[in-house]
């Protein structure tokens, strides 16, 4: 029989794997990898601030992630190249968060837990947060799937079909911020991008349509979460990085398989 904390960790991991599947695909298709990273890094500032003013951590991270996402999308295309802009914002968020955290007297903040995740310590309340967030995001993506996909392909094509791509991008940004906020506990803010991108990149190799790719990404994510946690339990390795390593293995195997198929 598995210990309770491992069961809770697995349920949390499954929630994050499922929510990360559609979002991870959009991040890959729209080349938003660095954008996701900036949003995740901003979350540290949110954590520090929510500890300072005694706000729930989830709310703080969500607000910081949203703020970062909107700032970056507003500023992009006005002067700085977007990778420069994202580089500035991502590391500014991280640095500011660390500095603000050091000012907090009386609160011992476990930085490692936020940077690399603390999935073995998820509480029942954390599970509620993760799954409510996950279900909300899934419903949102399901509802907006077709318009978001058309907007991703081509903005003019979207307009000509009466879709406003700016609105779809906004919805995607909100969904991404929620995903970041619920995933921090599981993999930590430094590895959220990995969780978004690696399963999607792995599934790309075996997918013929966008929908298959999302399903493939979910499968890779779920198997990675379960296997990674078991591995971590038996070999005493850090759980978040172990999950990422398992999905990396999937990526390597599926990419090699694809290269092999093309070569022959």
């Amino acid at each position: 029989m598995l210990p309770d904390f491992l069961i809770r960790a697995t349920i949390a991991g499954l929630g994050v794997a499922i929510i990360a599947a559609p979002l991870g695909c959009f991040v890959v298709w729209r080349r938003m990898a660095y954008f996701g990273e900036a949003t995740a890094h901003a979350a540290l500032l949110g954590i520090a601030l929510s500890l300072a003013i005694e706000m729930p951590i989830f709310t703080g991270t969500l607000l910081a992630a949203l703020l970062m996402a909107f700032t970056v999308s507003q500023l992009s295309g006005r002067g700085l190249a977007s990778d420069t802009l994202l580089g500035v914002s991502a590391h500014a968020g991280l640095a500011l968060g660390l500095v603000v955290a050091s000012f907090l007297s009386g609160v011992r903040i476990d930085l490692m837990a936020y940077l690399f995740g603390d999935i073995l310590a998820v509480s029942i309340n954390d599970l509620y947060t993760i799954w409510i967030g996950a279900i909300f995001v899934l419903l949102l993506v399901y509802w907006r799937w077709s318009p978001m996909l058309v907007s991703t392909l081509n903005e003019e094509l979207a307009y000509s079909n009466g879709i406003n791509p700016k609105r779809e991008k906004l919805i995607l940004t909100v969904a991404l911020a929620i995903t970041v906020a619920v995933s921090i506990k599981v993999v930590g803010l430094l590895l959220i991008s990995a969780l978004l991108i690696i399963p999607a990149a792995a599934a790309r190799n075996i997918s013929s349509t966008p929908e298959f790719m999302v399903i493939g990404t979910a499968v890779v994510g779920i198997v990675s979460a379960i296997t990674g946690l078991q591995f971590s339990y038996f070999f005493n390795t850090p759980p978040g990085p172990s999950i990422v390593c398992v999905s990396l293995t999937f990526f390597l195997i599926l990419s090699t398989k694809k290269l092999w198929t093309i070569g022959h």
Partner: peptide, 26 residues
């Protein structure tokens, strides 16, 4: 009802899309 043919449409290499799925887009 507008049938729009864009000047260029770059489908990112990371986005798998069969012709059949593309025709069913909207």
């Amino acid at each position: 009802r507008i049938g729009y043919v864009p000047q260029r449409l770059n489908i990112d290499h990371t986005l798998p899309m069969t012709v059949q799925r593309f025709l069913n887009l909207t």
